[in-house]
Simulated assay, not measured.
Amino acid sequence: MLAMPEPTPLPDDLQRRAFSRGDADGAGLRPGRLRRRDIRRPFHGVQIVGSFGSLQERCHAYRVRMKPGHAFSHQTAVLLHGLPLARAFEEELDLHVSVVMPGRAPTTRGVVGHRIRIAPPVVDLGGLPVVRADEAWAQLGPLLALDELIVLGDAVLWADRSLQDPMHAAARVPYRPARERLQKALREIRSGCASPGETRVRLLLVRAGVPEPELNAEVRLPGETVHPDLVWRDRRVALEYEGDGHREREQFQYDVGRYGRLREAGWTVIQVTAADLQGGGAQQLIRRVLALVG
Score class of each variant (00 low, 15 high):
1 M>N: 10
1 M>C: 05
2 L>H: 12
2 L>C: 07
4 M>T: 15
7 P>M: 11
15 Q>H: 01
16 R>S: 14
19 F>R: 03
19 F>I: 06
20 S>N: 06
23 D>A: 10
23 D>Y: 06
26 G>S: 13
26 G>R: 14
26 G>K: 04
27 A>R: 05
29 L>F: 01
31 P>F: 01
35 R>T: 12
37 R>V: 11
37 R>E: 13
38 D>H: 12
40 R>L: 14
42 P>F: 06
47 Q>F: 13
50 G>N: 09
53 G>C: 06
56 Q>K: 07
59 C>S: 02
60 H>S: 08
61 A>G: 06
62 Y>L: 07
65 R>Y: 00
67 K>I: 03
68 P>A: 13
72 F>V: 04
74 H>C: 04
74 H>I: 04
74 H>E: 05
76 T>G: 11
76 T>C: 09
78 V>H: 05
80 L>P: 08
81 H>N: 06
84 P>V: 10
86 A>E: 14
88 A>S: 14
95 L>A: 07
97 V>H: 05
97 V>F: 04
98 S>I: 05
99 V>Q: 03
105 A>D: 06
109 R>C: 03
110 G>Y: 07
116 I>C: 03
118 I>W: 05
120 P>W: 06
121 P>A: 15
122 V>P: 06
124 D>K: 11
131 V>R: 02
131 V>A: 02
132 R>N: 09
139 Q>E: 09
143 L>G: 01
143 L>R: 14
145 A>L: 12
147 D>Y: 07
153 G>C: 04
154 D>P: 07
155 A>N: 02
158 W>I: 03
161 R>S: 14
161 R>D: 11
165 D>V: 15
166 P>K: 06
172 R>G: 10
174 P>E: 08
174 P>H: 13
179 R>A: 15
179 R>Y: 02
181 R>L: 05
184 K>G: 00
186 L>V: 07
187 R>M: 13
189 I>W: 04
190 R>D: 12
197 G>M: 09
200 R>I: 02
201 V>Y: 03
202 R>N: 05
204 L>S: 10
205 L>H: 06
207 R>A: 07
208 A>D: 09
209 G>H: 10
210 V>P: 01
216 N>H: 12
220 R>N: 08
221 L>V: 09
222 P>I: 01
223 G>V: 12
224 E>C: 13
230 L>G: 05
231 V>M: 03
235 R>W: 14
236 R>I: 03
237 V>I: 14
240 E>D: 13
243 G>K: 10
245 G>S: 10
249 R>A: 13
250 E>P: 04
251 Q>C: 03
252 F>H: 13
253 Q>R: 15
254 Y>G: 00
254 Y>A: 15
254 Y>P: 00
255 D>W: 01
255 D>Y: 00
255 D>N: 12
257 G>S: 15
259 Y>T: 12
260 G>M: 03
260 G>N: 15
261 R>D: 11
262 L>M: 15
264 E>D: 15
266 G>W: 09
266 G>P: 07
270 I>R: 00
270 I>V: 15
274 A>M: 07
279 G>L: 06
284 Q>N: 10
285 L>T: 08
285 L>S: 02
286 I>W: 01
287 R>V: 09
291 A>C: 12
292 L>G: 05
293 V>I: 09
294 G>R: 04
